[in-house]
């Protein structure tokens, strides 16, 4: 009976992305933005007013990747002044570094000073993560699932999502953290044995995104513990997530 699967198997072929570090995404993919150095304050004001999540700062003009929902509306209004490259390596460990200022066109990288020592010594070769969706809209959750699928195969690095927090080395939070989920999130964090890391994935989780300052949220968890990695995106692309973790744990 296995013979009947052979034609499917051949047609399926090889699906995995061989080099996750240097994969390419289509031109339309909104990754790291670049703001032209000659953008005027008047132009900045126009896009700052337009931005649905107040991600654009004035003087100098800047875009906060932790707030940005990557709708690209600012780039449509000011083509040539603001553009989004398809550079997907935008995960960082320092909230400050997520603010891209005008005239800056260089890769976003982790701040080596801020990486806790035990992360690289303990989690370098294997990392098990417990994900908690706290008000996530299921797009970030589906992208987290996709990191382990046949295409991205994060498992090749020994990095996996696990069912029990007791088996996990860290917590991945998606969603803006709804008040109704705050307690369960805390219980899950407490159940993970130390040392443990905390990753927030997606704009919703980093800043609340479109839900920021919503009355139904309770984001106090994030002020209680250090955050080891911020993964921007709406939802974060699997390549952004995987590369962020590889950078954090010091992998090639």
């Amino acid at each position: 009976m296995l013979l009947r699967e052979l034609p499917i198997f051949f047609r399926h072929g090889r699906q995995f992305v061989p080099d996750l570090r240097r994969g390419t995404l289509p031109e339309t993919f909104p990754g790291r933005p670049v703001i032209s150095p000659d953008i005027t304050p008047e132009e900045t004001l126009i896009v700052a007013k337009l931005c649905p999540v107040q991600a654009i700062g004035m003087a100098p003009c800047s875009i906060d990747l932790g707030k940005c929902v990557f709708c690209k509306e600012c780039a449509f209004v000011l083509p040539g002044k603001i553009s989004f490259t398809n550079d997907f390596r935008i995960a960082v460990n320092n909230r400050e570094k997520m603010i891209i200022r005008q005239g800056v066109d260089e890769p976003v990288r982790l701040d080596p000073e801020k990486i806790r020592k035990e992360i690289r010594s303990i989690f370098r070769h294997a990392l098990k993560l417990r994900q908690v969706s706290a008000g996530g809209d299921n797009s970030a959750e589906m992208e987290m699932n996709a990191t382990g699928n046949v295409n991205f195969d994060m498992g090749r690095y020994g990095i996996e999502f696990v069912a029990s927090p007791r088996h996990a080395d860290g917590l991945v939070i998606t969603g803006p953290i709804s008040g109704n989920m705050a307690e369960a999130l805390q219980i899950c964090y407490d159940a993970i044995p130390g040392p443990k890391l905390v990753i927030v994935a997606g704009t919703d989780a980093i800043s609340g995104g479109i839900f920021q300052n919503g009355e139904a949220l309770d984001r106090s968890f994030l002020s209680r513990y250090p955050i080891d990695l911020f993964v921007p995106g709406n939802p974060p692309h699997p390549l952004t997530f995987i590369n962020g973790i590889l950078d954090l744990t010091g992998r090639k």
Partner: peptide, 30 residues
């Protein structure tokens, strides 16, 4: 109820059409 983010109230409180459009995309991301 664990996922409650107050979507219906936000549609009323955030009158910007672009804001509402982005919000409608996040009601259920799938």
């Amino acid at each position: 109820g664990y996922q409650h983010r107050g979507v219906e109230r936000l549609f009323v409180e955030r009158p910007g059409v672009l804001q509402q459009t982005v919000l409608s995309e996040s009601i259920a991301g799938d």
